[in-house]
C-alpha cells in the first residue's frame, strides 16, 4: 500500500476508513485513489471548487492524514455536481466522482453531515419521491425539499414566480406520475436493503 493509514487512529476514524475502502471496491479502478500524486488537476478542473471548504485534491490529502470524519463533515462532497471533469482528466486514472459518491453514501449511512448546510436533504427528498411514486414528481420534490430545509423560502417571490412561469407553460406536473409497478419497486428496495452494503 502506498499510503498506509496513520499509526494512531481513533477507533471511529478507523471504522469510517474501513467502510470507505469497502465502498471503493464497488467500482472499477476504485483503488487507484492510492496512486494520487497530489497534482491538483481535479481541483483545477472542478467548476465548483471555489465554493468548497476542502478542494478535491485536499480531500485525498486529508484522507491520507487520517481526517476522514472532517471530510464527511465538509460541504465539499455535497457541492460536487457530478460533472466528471476531474475523472476524465486525472492523469492517474482515479475515479474521483465515483469516490465522492462513495463519501456521500458513507456520510448518509453514518449520519455525518455539514453543520447548517442541508445539501443531503436534496438527495433524501428525491429518494423519498421514488419510494412514494416510483418517479420523481418535480413539484412535490421541490415542496418537500423546501419544507425540510427552508420553509420560509417557499414564500419568496423568486420561487413563486418560477413555479407560476412553469405552470403557465404546462411545464409543471400537478399530478404525481405514480407507476403501476410500485409493488416491484418496493420489492427491489426491500431486497437490496436486506443484502446490506451502502
Amino acid at each position: 500500500m502506498t499510503n498506509p493509514a496513520p499509526a494512531a487512529l481513533r477507533s471511529k476514524e478507523a471504522e469510517l476508513r474501513a467502510a470507505f475502502w469497502d465502498q471503493v471496491a464497488t467500482f472499477p479502478n476504485g483503488f487507484k485513489i492510492r496512486d494520487c500524486i497530489q497534482c491538483g488537476t481535479c481541483t483545477g478542473s472542478c467548476p465548483v471548487a471555489h465554493a468548497m471548504d476542502i478542494t478535491p485534491r485536499e480531500i485525498v490529502a486529508l484522507f491520507r492524514a487520517g481526517f476522514l470524519e472532517d471530510i464527511l463533515r465538509s460541504r465539499s462532497i455535497w457541492i460536487c455536481a457530478s460533472c466528471y471533469a476531474c475523472t476524465v482528466r486525472c492523469p492517474q486514472g482515479i475515479r474521483v466522482t465515483d469516490s465522492v459518491y462513495a463519501l456521500k453514501r458513507l456520510a448518509s449511512a453514518k449520519g455525518i453531515f455539514p453543520r447548517s448546510f442541508p445539501a443531503h436533504a436534496l438527495s433524501e427528498a428525491f429518494v423519498g419521491n421514488i419510494h412514494s411514486f416510483g418517479r420523481n414528481w418535480e413539484l412535490w420534490f421541490g415542496l418537500k425539499y423546501y419544507l425540510s430545509t427552508n420553509p420560509v423560502g417557499l414564500l419568496s417571490p423568486n420561487i413563486q414566480k418560477f413555479a407560476l412561469r412553469m405552470l403557465k407553460r404546462k411545464r409543471l406536473g400537478l399530478k404525481p406520475a405514480r407507476i403501476h409497478g410500485m409493488k416491484e419497486v418496493r420489492a427491489i428496495i426491500k431486497k437490496a436493503q436486506s443484502m446490506g452494503g451502502l
Binding site: Q23, A81, L122, F126, A192, Q193, M195, G197
Partner: peptide, 20 residues
C-alpha cells in the same frame, strides 16, 4: 418505467439505486 435515481439515489445507497 421508474425514475433512474439521477445523482441522488447513488448518493444514498448504491445497490438499491442500481437495481431500481
Amino acid at each position: 418505467w421508474n425514475c433512474c435515481g439521477a445523482t441522488s439515489y447513488i448518493s444514498m445507497n448504491k445497490l438499491t439505486a442500481y437495481s431500481l
